[in-house]
Amino acid sequence: MMSKIVRSMTRPLYPFIILFGAYLVVHGHLTPGGGFQGGAVAASAIALLVVAYGGTRMFRKGTLTAMESSGLIVFISLAMVGMATVFFYNFLANGGPIFGEAIFYGPNPGYFNTAGVIPLMNMAVGLEVIGGLGVIIIALGKKAFEVME
């Protein structure tokens, strides 16, 4: 439990940190960043909550573990769906029903509805990373506060 200043600054700040992480994950195929980076940014919001309040009631260990496992399963199954050609085949790019728009070679402003399976994999990996790092942070923080008492 930190001072009142830290606690009252954490409360309005952490949704925006999670939002920025989600932005990095979702726009991974257009801008720098991606699943791992965005997930780490979102997990830093959990770290802030743990440091400021000494634990979170909002993010439960079970939920985060489920997020991690489901993210990994979605990632592997997306890779398996392309198995007809080869493992990790991008079966949605350039003509799939979702994220299937083709782009031309060269500089362009960046269209969201492109890149096939890559945004879906980014979201799966982002889910996995926020779950995994969040669980690690909560477990270590809990132990640290137990030891300090």
Binding site: G28, H29, L30, T31, P32, G34, N90, A93, N94, F99, G100, E101, A102, I103, F104, Y105, G106, N108, G110, T114, A115, G116, I118, N122
Partner: peptide, 12 residues
């Protein structure tokens, strides 16, 4: 860009 449709080549 042509094969994967992603602007970010690192991600592709």
């Amino acid at each position: 860009q042509r094969q994967t449709g992603a602007n970010n080549i690192v991600t592709s």
